[in-house]
């Protein structure tokens, strides 16, 4: 599992530019899936037909980033955020673009504090427009932050862990359930960071009987932590509500039963500021039974995150158990 997380987190996949990680993920399920494809919005989808109701497992594969929107005569770039990244998070950091170009995000001279992206520019060391245009183009996506570090005591820290961890969990769960002969699809969703824009398309196409979404959620066992009541290392959380969903009680019962059967303590997520793919899927077509299972992270939704591998393992076990409990 850890190897997969590290490998997936190495991919650069800002929202809308998920191309490369898509192939890595689909390659990883090719051997066991009946069919795999990429849809119009960039979701990577694999299905294995089998017994029981059709369950869709979803994890977003994109991460917040930036996109080049202007190149000036002196060879400097301007960027806009994709996803919820703020100017203050982006300023003074290295940006790695999907084409290999790297740059430094700088604040215009004379500006005191980075508050808006209009005040920022990216220096890629180009001497003039022409040179810049040979290494960057309008629409080029990039990400901030550094690679994954194993900080010991079973914890990892680094760029894109939210939600490559979820991708790794979904990947393993899909393989496991497919091997058990269940009718299961996995969707690695695109464009979650700008507001869950793609997951509903996959749900519309698959029409599953149940969807389970795996995503990171901020743990609040940190100084000033108030966003949720969750603790890192205390196990997976069932999503009671976020900005996009309120869980039906039947779904809550299903997850609780699965947790009980495993003897696993469940945390409860109430995160009014969060927006996972759960709500987008739930409101597709006539309504789809959808559950969110989250692993706690420190600083969700930001460029980098810190996770606990014990939570990750427990989330995987809960996910598999929930699917097996469903429809029995």
């Amino acid at each position: 599992m850890k190897e997969w997380i590290v490998r997936l987190a190495a991919e650069i996949a800002p929202s809308g530019s998920e191309g490369r990680i898509t192939s890595v993920l689909l390659d990883a399920v090719q051997d066991i899936a009946d069919e795999t494809h990429m849809d119009a919005l960039g979701n990577a989808i694999a299905t294995k037909r089998g017994e029981g109701p059709h369950v869709m497992i979803a994890a977003h594969m994109d991460e917040p980033g930036v996109m080049v929107i202007d190149i000036d005569d002196d060879g400097f770039l301007r960027v806009i955020p994709t996803g919820g990244l703020t100017a203050s998070e982006a300023a003074f950091r290295q940006v790695a673009f999907t084409n290999g170009t790297v740059g430094l995000v700088c604040l215009e001279d004379g500006e005191k504090r980075p508050e808006q992206f209009e005040q920022l520019f990216v220096d890629i060391g180009a001497k003039h427009r022409q040179e810049a245009e040979s290494r960057a183009f309008i629409g080029l996506g990039g990400v901030l932050g550094t690679g994954v570090a194993d900080i010991g005591n079973g914890r990892l820290l680094g760029r894109a862990l939210d939600n490559r961890v979820g991708c790794a969990i979904a990947l393993h769960a899909f393989r496991e359930l497919a091997q058990l002969g269940r009718y299961v699809s996995v969707v690695f969703t695109a464009q979650n960071a700008p507001g869950a824009r793609a997951a509903q398309a996959a749900a519309f196409a698959l029409e599953p009987d149940l969807a389970i979404v795996v995503d990171g959620v901020p743990a609040s066992d940190v100084p000033g932590g108030k966003r949720t009541a969750l603790k890192l290392g205390a196990g997976p959380a069932f999503k009671v509500m976020d900005a996009g969903t309120v869980a039906p009680l039947s779904v809550k019962q299903l997850i609780e039963d699965a947790a009980d059967a495993l003897g696993l303590t469940l945390q409860y997520e109430v995160w009014p500021g969060g927006r996972s793919d759960t709500g987008a899927i739930q409101l597709t077509r006539e309504g789809i039974l959808a559950a969110g299972i989250s692993y706690p992270v420190h600083t969700a939704g930001a460029a980098e995150a810190l996770v606990d591998l014990a939570d990750v393992e427990a989330t995987l076990r809960l996910l598999v158990a929930a699917v097996q409990t469903f429809g029995q």
Partner: peptide, 16 residues
């Protein structure tokens, strides 16, 4: 259901 959080029940029942 769920009107107060964003007309959610209406969205799905209208479709159905």
């Amino acid at each position: 259901v769920q009107e107060e959080v964003g007309l959610r029940g209406a969205q799905t029942v209208g479709f159905a």
